[in-house]
Lab assay of single mutants.
Amino acid sequence: SIEEEIKKAEEAKEKGKTFIHGDFVATTEELLDELLKRLRKKL
């Protein structure tokens, strides 16, 4: 679910890890923020 993806992305951000969502690879905090923004729009 979208909620689960958001939670996983937030955890990755806290730990400074890379998060992959489909073909979107978030390797930096900026990219994770962008991904979180996109996911929240889908809610």
Rank of each mutant, 00 (worst) to 15 (best):
A9C: 14
K42G: 04
V25S: 06
R38E: 14
F24L: 07
G16K: 11
L35V: 03
L43W: 06
K41P: 04
K8N: 08
K41Y: 05
K37G: 07
S1H: 10
T27R: 08
E4N: 08
S1N: 09
V25P: 04
D23L: 12
G16H: 06
I2S: 04
K13E: 02
G22E: 10
H21R: 04
E11W: 09
E29H: 12
K37I: 12
L35C: 07
I2G: 02
E3Q: 11
A26Y: 13
K8L: 12
A12E: 04
G16N: 08
E5L: 15
E4L: 10
I6A: 02
L32H: 01
A12W: 05
I20P: 02
L35P: 00
L35N: 00
E30A: 12
T28D: 05
D33F: 08
F19T: 03
E34G: 02
L36Q: 00
E3T: 09
E5S: 09
E10P: 01
I20E: 05
K17N: 13
L39I: 09
I20A: 09
I6G: 02
F24Y: 07
T28Y: 08
T18E: 11
D33Q: 05
A12K: 00
D33G: 06
D33W: 10
S1A: 11
L32R: 00
K15M: 12
T27E: 09
E29Y: 11
A9P: 01
F24E: 04
K13I: 06
E4F: 06
F24P: 02
E29S: 13
E30I: 06
V25W: 12
D33R: 10
G22N: 06
E3W: 14
K7H: 08
A12D: 03
L43D: 01
E4P: 02
I6R: 02
D23E: 09
I2W: 06
F24N: 01
E4C: 14
E4R: 09
I20G: 02
K8Q: 12
A12G: 02
L31P: 01
E14L: 14
H21C: 15
K15H: 13
I6E: 02
E3C: 15
F19W: 09
E10I: 12
K13A: 04
E30D: 09
G16T: 04
L32N: 00
K17A: 13
S1K: 09
H21I: 11
E34W: 12
T27C: 10
F19C: 00
E30S: 10
R40Q: 09
K37N: 11
G22S: 05
L35T: 00
L31M: 14
I2K: 03
L32S: 00
L35D: 00
A12M: 04
T28G: 07
K37E: 15
V25M: 12
L35A: 01
E11C: 15
A9E: 02
H21A: 07
K37F: 08
A12I: 04
R40H: 13
D33P: 00
I2F: 06
K8T: 03
K17R: 10
K41Q: 13
L35R: 00
E14M: 12
E10H: 05
E14Y: 11
E5H: 09
A12F: 01
E11M: 06
E3I: 13
H21P: 04
L39V: 01
I20K: 06
T18M: 10
L32W: 07
S1M: 10
E29V: 14
K15S: 12
A12V: 02
E4T: 05
K15F: 09
E5V: 15
V25Q: 11
T28C: 12
F24M: 06
F24D: 04
K15L: 13
E30V: 06
H21F: 13
A12R: 01
L32A: 00
R38T: 13
K7W: 06
G22L: 12
K7F: 07
L31K: 04
G22T: 03
L43Q: 07
A9L: 13
K8G: 08
R40K: 09
E14C: 14
T18I: 13
K7E: 07
I6T: 02
K37L: 13
R38I: 15
V25Y: 09
E34A: 07
E11F: 05
G22M: 08
E34C: 00
K41L: 08
K42E: 14
L39Q: 00
K13V: 03
D33M: 08
E34Q: 09
R38A: 14
K7S: 07
V25A: 10
T27K: 09
H21M: 10
T27S: 14
K37V: 10
H21K: 02
H21L: 12
E30L: 11
T18G: 10
G16A: 03
E5D: 12
E29R: 14
L39R: 00
L36D: 00
L36V: 05
I6H: 01
K17H: 14
L32I: 13
L43S: 01
A12H: 05
E14H: 10
E10N: 06
A26D: 01
K13F: 05
D23Q: 10
T27Y: 14
H21T: 05
F19D: 02
E3V: 11
H21G: 08
E30G: 05
H21V: 06
E10T: 09
A26F: 10
G22D: 05
E29A: 15
A26R: 02
L39H: 02
E5A: 15
F19M: 06
T28K: 01
D33E: 12
K17G: 13
R40T: 09
K8Y: 05
E14F: 07
E10G: 02
E34V: 05
E29Q: 13
A12N: 02
L35G: 00
I20H: 05
T18C: 15
D23W: 13
S1Q: 08
K7P: 04
F19A: 04
K41T: 07
L39T: 00
F19Q: 03
K42Y: 13
E34P: 00
E34T: 04
G22V: 07
K7I: 09
K42R: 08
H21D: 04
E14S: 12
E3H: 10
V25C: 01
F19N: 03
K41V: 07
T27W: 14
L43K: 05
T27I: 09
E10L: 14
I2M: 06
